[in-house]
Design a protein around this nucleic acid. Structure first.
Lengths: 224, 224
DNA sequence: CGCCGAGTTGACAATGATCAAGACCTGTGG
DNA sequence: CCACAGGTCTTGATCATTGTCAACTCGGCG
């Protein structure tokens, strides 16, 4: 998942059929905190997230971390480049994954339908990343957090008591490393949103949307 | 071009053969300042930059701009997503481009060799963008500018008088919008690098590398 | 009940943005 | 060829946002 511009969100349902066409590989399960692959590993499988959440990370030598993307159910992770993984992939919760053999999507040998879907997924990935650049390069802390909450809501939001709400399966540090901020700043923005009654926090890992339109205004800079 | 981590730079020479295999479409020429396509346009062609430089831009309603990437000779621009362009593409100089029909790379109908190369190009694009995230999210202004100069040098650097040098075909504002900074900050960092004899400026659009290792240290944060 | 890590909050510092002025190119027309 | 005009670039002063450091709270778990 990236923070994509409204209107560019893409339906991910088409991945649903993937498993029907492929000679099924057994589902992979991963405990929270364990790694699916690491930067530099040769790519043997790519994975569709079925349930749970993973993060794609890159590290600098001095410890600075950037989370490239969160892998939510429906997302494809493990795009190879020159046959290698280019990020670490870590489970943030118990995760179920549907693996695919690289040969199934190979440009020459693979199933034409499957590799068509793979190509489309790669192109959608590029478009989503392009949106995300705008956020990292040009948006304020408040805009980033608001945009993030809305992006998560669009993907995994639920209705409860007539209100939209969303689970934050990741830590504040993960959110910060995804948005290019610090945990303190993320925490402060969330507190401020809570104090101004835009959201409510139902425990640490659940956000209830009280005034979605205010959040949308904040996310796009039309706040004041 | 993105600011990619050293060791993840990819050879772009394989695009060189593209034009040999395809029933050639006539080369496209573009004046500096003109647009090749705009966000939302239906994608009819994708282009390989032959000479010159283009920028891929996204705009926010309030005028904030992010340059997603620079298209240097050898780069492919115009990756479609849902059949649409997802960025504006603007020529920064006189540009020559080799167009390809979408049908040539289509997953079903296209030339297998060509679509294989296209797939690889898309996957390399993803990997390069992942590197770039680290820069926008986690690097300081000086680190960004240093990394940018090195990335450009790796792609278009030349030797002269026993020194590496590189042309900056874009304005300071373009560099700023690419790195997520302001023109003032870019200018200040360049001035500081000049004062500390790490680089020399030969006119506004040419940088001479005096101490490449110092630049490399700066770019990776191993400076002090 | 108490411990420990995660999260929050506050005070302060620093990086980079903003605002403003001046220098420097570049192209144009005399 | 020179003078001028307009934009781009640089530099300085100041300000704002966000990072840093530290203390404290909360919540889950033994």
């Amino acid at each position: 998942m990236y923070v994509t511009h409204a209107g560019h969100a893409f339906d991910t349902s088409e991945f649903a059929q993937w498993s029907e066409r492929a000679p099924a590989l057994p589902e992979t399960r991963l405990e929270a905190g364990t790694h699916l692959f690491r930067e530099g590993d040769p790519v043997e499988r790519i994975y569709k997230v079925v349930t749970g959440v993973v993060s794609l990370n890159r590290l600098l030598e001095d410890g600075r971390r950037q989370i490239i993307a969160f892998g939510l159910p429906g997302d494809l992770v493990g795009f190879p480049s020159n046959g290698r993984h280019h990020t670490d992939c870590e489970a943030l919760s118990l995760v179920r994954l549907q693996p695919f053999r690289l040969s199934q999507i190979d440009c020459r040998t693979g199933d034409p339908e499957l590799r068509g879907r793979f190509m489309e997924a790669a192109l959608r990935e590029i478009a989503a990343m392009q949106d995300h650049f705008m956020m990292l390069g040009r948006k304020s802390a408040a805009e980033r957090v608001a945009s993030f909450l809305l992006a998560l809501e669009a993907r995994t939001g639920q209705d409860r008591d007539g209100r939209r709400q969303v689970d934050l399966p990741m830590s504040r540090a993960d959110i910060a490393d995804f948005l290019g901020l610090t945990t303190e700043t993320v925490s402060r923005v969330l507190s401020q949103l809570r104090k101004s009654r835009v959201i409510a926090l139902d425990g640490i890992h659940r956000v209830v949307f009280l005034r979605g339109e205010a959040l949308r205004a904040l996310a796009t800079g039309n706040c004041g």
